[in-house]
Simulated assay, not measured.
Amino acid sequence: MERKSCWSLNLCLIIFLIMGLVGYIHFKKELVSTLTNEVEFSEAEVREKDMDIKNYGLAVEHTQKEFDDVDKEVKELQDEVGKLNSAKEEKDKEVKACTDSKAALSTDIAAVEKEKSEIEGEKTKWVEEINGLKQKIENQSPVCAFVNITSEVLQKEPTMKDLCAQNAVEVKV
């Protein structure tokens, strides 16, 4: 009986050992399954990170292209501003020349206006003198009524005609 009890003890030990091994294998399978899931999750994360990196790379390329386009536009605008500045400088020079010309013309106009006012002043004097002379002619001296101006008197005294023009008789010889 001792053999039988040993045998059953051995059998129990073997069953217990087998159960332990099955439990151990099951534990290891669970561990492998968990590790496999973690590896797959990590690979998915790596693939996702690779896609993110590719997307960021594409975004960087797109942004760089936009920067290049903006730089190109800035250069074009700077060239255009340079052209406009040179045109502005030319126009400023023309404006300055016109302003200088205007100042010179203003000086000339002032001189002409002054000359005109002087001429008008002289004209006024002449008109006054002419009017005075006309007045003198119209207002002849009462002596002229008694003077008989003949051609002989005119030859001796030519101013008599001016003094008493209405009484002068032109005698044809």
Rank of each mutant, 00 (worst) to 15 (best):
K116I: 06
H62N: 14
D50W: 04
L58R: 13
L105W: 06
F146Y: 09
K65A: 11
D162T: 09
N10M: 06
N167A: 13
D50N: 08
K136T: 05
L21C: 12
W126D: 01
K114M: 10
Q64K: 15
E138M: 12
L9N: 09
E94D: 04
F67M: 04
S5L: 11
F67G: 01
E76H: 08
L58Y: 15
A111T: 09
K161T: 01
E80A: 04
V70W: 02
P158T: 04
C164A: 03
S86R: 06
E45H: 03
E40I: 08
E138S: 15
L154R: 07
E89K: 07
K28T: 08
I109Y: 02
S42P: 02
K172G: 01
E113T: 11
G121I: 01
H62F: 13
Y24A: 14
L84P: 01
N139T: 14
E122D: 14
S117W: 05
I109N: 03
V39Q: 08
V171R: 02
Q135T: 12
E113Y: 04
G57E: 15
L105A: 07
I18K: 08
C12P: 01
L77W: 14
L133E: 07
V171T: 09
T150G: 10
E115N: 07
N148W: 08
T124Y: 05
L31C: 05
N167M: 13
V70Y: 13
R3H: 05
D52H: 01
N148R: 11
K172W: 06
E89T: 10
W7S: 07
L77N: 13
P158D: 04
M1D: 08
E128N: 12
M51E: 12
I137T: 09
V147R: 08
A165C: 05
A44D: 05
L77E: 12
N148Y: 06
S5P: 00
D162R: 12
T36N: 11
N167F: 02
E66A: 14
E115C: 03
E2T: 10
I53Q: 03
L77H: 11
S117N: 13
I25K: 14
A97L: 02
S106F: 01
D68W: 10
A59Y: 10
